[in-house]
């Protein structure tokens, strides 16, 4: 009797938790996290509040590149052929971030035919690290295949990554989240530096120089896990990039923010100014080291 009741209620629960149009399997949701969990440092609620959101977005760098009028090129993308060779959660999480940034780049340029490969790769990796339930593969595939509703495609892609990130944090797996974010950031920096190599641009050079601030934040997070050999090796690679960024000068000139209300819209203009000093030689060093590190990571 009890068994029957549990079964009926479980079915109700499973169906109740499914979103419309989404095939969702619950079998991976409750599995014990993999061995990397052993290196996890529990994060308190207070610390959680201070974890920086939006440290690297899968679409922001791609949006900037597109707005600069740079044409699409698939040579910047990482190949999806190697997905099944990524053997542990460290590599899977890092590459999940890399493919996430690639997906953002493809979405930005509306390259929906190539999107399928990337969402398949992301789904595989997300399943491996037990967050596949947050990646709405079915809907994304349908939208990409029909080349329709590109805004939704973009929204669901980014939202899925945010959901995976939140889930990892709330399940004491922030180490994997840190890797995913690192992958997103590194691939974004790789796009920017490759574009700067092909077509030098002052605004892009400044944006690359400002990544000094982002990298410092990222390193702070990753250093929490430096006792792990793989993290330590990753940090060594990032220190190589940081060494060049140390020579980038960023000066801040303070100003008063201004609030403008126009046609019922409110706009806040920040009147602080930041001046980024980055020489062409320094930029070249950053370009080369980023390429070297990123290529090493995707060949792991």
């Amino acid at each position: 009797m009890i068994k029957k009741l549990v079964y009926v209620l479980a079915v109700v629960l499973i169906f109740g938790s499914c979103r419309s149009g989404e095939k969702q399997t619950s079998e991976t949701e409750f599995e014990v996290p993999d061995s990397v969990l052993n290196t996890e440092v529990p994060i308190s609620e207070d610390v959680m509040q201070n974890i920086i959101q939006n440290i690297s977005s899968p679409i922001e760098m791609a949006a900037l590149i597109k707005e600069l009028g740079v044409p699409y090129s698939n040579k910047y993308l990482s190949s999806t052929d190697r997905v099944n060779k990524l053997s542990n959660s460290f590599k899977q999480s890092l590459n999940l971030g890399i493919y996430g940034a690639d997906l953002g780049y493809l979405n930005m340029y509306n390259k929906t035919s190539a999107v399928i490969d990337y969402i398949s790769a992301i789904k595989t990796l997300a399943d491996e690290i037990k967050v596949g339930q947050f990646f709405d593969f079915t809907t994304l595939k349908r939208l990409a295949t029909n080349n329709q509703n590109l805004d939704s495609l973009m929204y669901i892609s980014v939202h899925s990554f945010n959901q995976m990130d939140k889930y990892l944090h709330s399940n004491n797996r922030s180490n994997l989240s840190a890797l995913m974010i690192t992958g997103i950031w590194l691939e974004g920096l790789y796009f920017a530096t490759q574009v700067a190599k092909d077509a030098p641009n002052k605004q892009l050079a400044e944006r690359i120089g400002e990544q000094k601030i982002v990298l410092n934040e990222l390193i702070l997070i990753l250093e929490t896990y430096k006792k792990d050999k793989q993290f330590s090796k990753l940090l060594d690679d990032l220190y190589l990039i940081k060494e060049h960024f140390n020579d980038v000068n960023i000066k801040i000139i303070k100003g008063e923010p201004q609030m403008i209300e126009e046609n019922g819209m409110l706009t806040i203009v920040q009147n602080d100014k930041s001046i980024v000093e980055i020489t062409p030689e320094l930029l070249n060093k950053i370009i080369n080291t980023t390429e070297e590190v990123r290529n090493r990571i995707i060949s792991l």
């Binding site: 920086i52 706009t267 203009v269 602080d272």
Partner: peptide, 14 residues
Amino acid sequence: DFPYFDFKCQKTGV
């Protein structure tokens, strides 16, 4: 009240 506001960011940071 406003449902949203725009922020013109001039300085990368937290």
